[in-house]
Structures are given as C-alpha cells and as structure tokens.
C-alpha cells in the first residue's frame, strides 16, 4: 500500500513539486506530463474488457487528443512540445490497438498473462484452419461476376463478426486458450474479408 502510494507520486518536471504519476497535467503549475507506462485501456480511461463500447472509446480518444495533441502546444517550450508528442503517440498506439478486435483480443490476452503468437501456424488445429482458408481463398479467386464476389464478401464479413462474438464469449467464460485460438482464426478471416472487399471494389464500377 505504502509502496504504491509512493509510486503514485513523482516530481513534476516543471515546478518540481509532487504530481500523481498518472496525471496528464500538473495540478499546481499546469505543465503537461509524460505519458508514463500505463496500459492502453487505462490510458484511454476504459475498463479492460474485450466488449468495448466503440463509440465511447472514440469519444475518449478524441477527448484526450484534444488536450494533448502537439497542435495544442505549438507555441509552448520545446520540452512541452516533446512531451505532448509523446502523449499523442501513446494515445494513437492505444487507440489503434483497442479499436481493432484482433489486436484488442491479443493485447488483452497479453495483459492477462496469456500472450498469443499471431505468427504461429504450426499446430494441427491451425492446419485445419489453413485448409478451410485455402478453400475460401480459391473460391474468391474463382469468382468472376460482381454478384459472386459480393456474396463472398458478405459471407467473409459475417464470419468475422461471428468469430468476434466467439472471442467475446471465450473471454467472458475466462477461456483464455480458446480466446487465443479464435484470435488466430480472426486474423485469417479478417484478411480474407479484406481481400474480398478489395476485389469487390475493383470489379464493381459506379454507374
């Protein structure tokens, strides 16, 4: 308790007085503080969960950027400019990670001490996944009419959404192994959906 209380107070770089280590601005002199090492959820003022309210996340992100973006510090001292850049960089990192379901799931798994390697594809389980993906990819390559491609794009999209629901369920059931596997599955599904979308916009012409 005492140790954490101690860690919670650091000297403000500007007025040298005590400031909460997680504070954005010094409550005494108003100077912007460094971003500190906090997790992405805390940084954006969100509760760590897979089921994030996306509108709330975006509101928080814009709200923090409004206060911390380098554009707010253009006529401040060099040190304040540098700190605001560091803050805005951390906010971008946090937001880009949390807004993407796959990255969010992987990040949450890391936070929970159960990291997943998204580059892995060696297990039997994954081989089945690869087979399934190969078939779907072939179907997409063979599709020639806009209708066929559109249909595949819709299918891919709904599989992505279904997978996200399963991930959510896995997290809620504290099944971190399951969430990890689904996370890898989501990676492939999302890639396929993106390719389908790209092909769709390539072959669909506006009237």
């Amino acid at each position: 308790m005492n140790a954490s209380a101690l860690a919670a107070v650091v000297p403000c770089w500007s007025c040298k007085g005590p400031v909460a280590s997680r504070a954005l601005f010094c409550s005494v002199c108003g100077a912007v503080q460094g971003p500190g090492a906090i997790d992405h959820f805390t940084r954006l003022g969100m509760t760590p969960t897979f089921d994030l309210d996306m509108d709330a996340l975006e509101r928080q992100y814009f709200g923090f950027q409004r206060r911390l973006h380098p554009d707010r510090f253009a006529s401040k001292s060099g040190k304040e400019k540098a700190l605001s850049q560091a803050q805005a960089t951390s906010l971008n990192d946090a937001y880009e990670t949390l807004k993407d379901p796959m990255k969010r799931a992987a990040y949450l798994l890391t936070l929970l001490g159960h990291p997943v390697d998204l580059t892995a594809c060696g297990t039997i389980n994954d081989r089945a996944l690869l087979m399934e993906q190969m078939e779907k990819r072939e179907a997409l390559a063979d599709a020639t009419t806009p209708e066929q491609v559109a249909k595949l794009a819709v299918e891919a999209e709904s599989e992505v959404i279904a997978c996200q629901c399963h991930i959510s369920a896995a997290f809620n059931a504290a099944d971190l192994d399951g969430a990890g596997h689904l996370c890898i599955r989501l990676k492939y599904l999302a890639k396929l959906a993106e390719e389908a979308r790209a092909k769709k916009s390539r072959i669909t012409r506006m009237p």
Binding site: V9, A20, A23, S27, G45, R59, Q60, Y61, G63
Partner: peptide, 8 residues
Amino acid sequence: LDDALGGE
C-alpha cells in the same frame, strides 16, 4: 494530485 483521467 491526480488530475482526472477522463477524456472529455
């Protein structure tokens, strides 16, 4: 000491 962490 803790300037709020709320965004808006």
